[in-house]
Amino acid sequence: GSLMYASIFGNVSAIIQRLYSGTARYHTQMLRVREFIRFHQIPNPLRQRLEEYFQHAWSYTNGIDMNAVLKGFPECLQADICLHLNRSLLQHCKPFRGATKGCLRALAMKFKTTHAPPGDTLVHAGDLLTALYFISRGSIEILRGDVVVAILGKNDIFGEPLNLYARPGKSNGDVRALTYCDLHKIHRDDLLEVLDMYPEFSDHFWSSLEITFNLRDTNMIPGSPGSTELEGGFSRQRKRKLSFRRRTDKDTEQPGEVSALGPGRAGAGPSSRGRPGGPWGESPSSGPSSPESSEDEGPGRSSSPLRLVPFSSPRPPGEPPGGEPLMEDCEKSSDTCNPLSGAFSGVSNIFSFWGDSRGRQYQELPRCPAPTPSLLNIPLSSPGRRPRGDVESRLDALQRQLNRLETRLSADMATVLQLLQRQMTLVPPAYSAVTTPGPGPTSTSPLLPVSPLPTLTLDSLSQVSQFMACEELPPGAPELPQEGPTRRLSLPGQLGALTSQPLHRHGSDPGS
């Protein structure tokens, strides 16, 4: 009898404990919600809404976190579960008819179910419309201010047509639940991603989709105040780019002037030289400038040598048109050559190039014969006009050509200096018209024969001689050997007369 009593008592207590286990969990969670309300000092109306929603959600799901349970299964099984949970929507909604099984599984994985109690606001006026909503159960109302403009029910759709707008718009009203509602919502990016994977279904979906109420604000059109608020930074940046392009296009129409201050000032006329910023005076940081632009901040801005204009002085008759350009485009679109090309026009420029290279940067340069637009006047290309890779490749080509020119210049200078040193070592320090008596009659020769300089066969020296023939050397430049009979510069000019005159010897006659 005691054994029977113990078994009955144990079973009854276990049954009672299981009955009250759900209630215990409910009270535990309710205590957490109330502690949250007390800690954050939530006001009474919002506090009442929180408690009511918790009670309804507990009775609806029995305190089970559906998302946590669903995430515990593998992905393939999750797709089947989501397809079952959203079967009513996918079967009865017209846009989803005719979709393949794979497309429906992908869509079912992207849908999220939302449960809303009465009085809950789903979308506020001015919120971004980031999702498309399908009503599965219940009814909602749409308000503009305090005026109800629409009441939607089961199988209705609200949001915005995503295929017509590249960016999400703003809501033009509040969406509030009238009863307990079940909503299926899919985010904008998720829907577009699935439709991109199934393009054959995309056309059918957009053609058959009928949005019951379009929440997009109709005033959000390009150029409206609301649109400016939504895309303020983007609009200002776009206007700045367009104004920069218009100014650079105007600059290219004036090829007669070359400016070292950047493309923003290349198009300024002579009357605007004294102004601080020219056409860019209202925004000094709008356009890029070269490193020399920092010198323009000092006094005497109108007389600054940074602004270059072609000189009108005539060229000498024998002067060549100019050196070879550094870039391939210089032959086609440049009416002034790079300062480095002028360094190779003569030997005198070679000796004085490194010492006063900055001073020569603004000297007169030889002109190319074609009066085409200036290379320095070409505006900086924006990322939309020329690819970045093209600019980098041009810079690399320019750097390689500069290296080759520097190597060639160093070799030419070394060769010229070597020839000058050899000339100085071969010439005796001094010569006299009267020579010392020699031991015999073989001493009648006034000077030792001097062998002429070897013929220069280097390509670089031939180019130097060509430049010497075309360029007029300055007075202080050293002379180079030329073709024809060679003669030492330090010898007297009348050596031929010395050989014809008898030598005057000093000596005593033994017979006297």
Rank of each mutant, 00 (worst) to 15 (best):
G126D: 03
G126C: 01
D127W: 01
Y133I: 03
Y133V: 05
Y133Q: 03
S136M: 05
S136N: 11
S139K: 13
I140W: 01
I140M: 05
L143E: 04
R144C: 03
R144Q: 09
V147N: 11
V147T: 13
I151Y: 04
L152W: 01
G153F: 04
K154Q: 14
D156H: 06
F158W: 01
L164T: 13
Y165P: 04
G169E: 01
N172K: 10
R176E: 01
L183T: 04
H184F: 07
H187D: 11
R188W: 09
D189H: 07
D189G: 07
L191F: 03
D196R: 10
Y198R: 02
D203V: 13
H204M: 04
W206K: 06
S207Y: 06
T212I: 03
F213P: 01
F213A: 05
L215G: 03
R216I: 03
R216M: 04
N219Y: 13
I221S: 12
S224N: 12
P225I: 10
G226F: 09
S227K: 08
G232E: 12
F234R: 11
S235L: 10
S243A: 09
R245E: 08
D249R: 10
D251K: 08
D251C: 06
E253K: 07
G256T: 09
S259E: 10
A260V: 12
A260F: 10
L261C: 10
G262H: 12
R265N: 12
G269L: 11
P270E: 06
R273W: 04
S285I: 07
S286M: 15
S286P: 11
P288Q: 12
S289G: 13
D296F: 12
G298P: 04
P299K: 15
R301M: 12
S303A: 12
P305E: 15
L308V: 07
F311A: 04
P314M: 07
P320A: 13
P321L: 15
P321V: 14
P325L: 12
K332R: 13
C337A: 13
P339E: 11
L340F: 04
L340V: 09
S345E: 09
S345M: 08
S345G: 06
V347M: 13
V347R: 07
V347I: 15
F353V: 07
F353S: 11
G355L: 06
D356T: 11
R358D: 04
Q361T: 11
Q363P: 09
E364C: 04
C368R: 15
P371S: 09
N377H: 14
P379Y: 01
S381C: 05
S381I: 13
R385E: 04
P387G: 14
P387F: 13
E392D: 11
E392P: 09
S393L: 15
S393N: 15
R394D: 03
L398H: 04
L398A: 04
R400S: 15
N403K: 05
N403E: 04
R404H: 05
T407V: 12
R408L: 08
R408G: 08
L409D: 04
L409K: 04
M413C: 04
A414C: 08
T415I: 11
M424L: 10
P428W: 09
P428T: 08
P429V: 12
A430Y: 12
S432T: 11
T435E: 10
P437C: 13
P437N: 13
G440M: 07
T442L: 06
S443F: 08
P446F: 08
T455G: 10
T455I: 07
T457Y: 06
T457Q: 10
T457S: 05
L458T: 12
L458G: 11
L461T: 09
S465Q: 11
C470T: 09
E471D: 13
L473D: 13
P474H: 06
P474C: 12
P475S: 11
P478C: 10
L491D: 14
G493S: 10
L495K: 09
G496E: 09
S500N: 08
Q501T: 04
H506P: 10
S508E: 12
P510V: 09
G511Y: 06
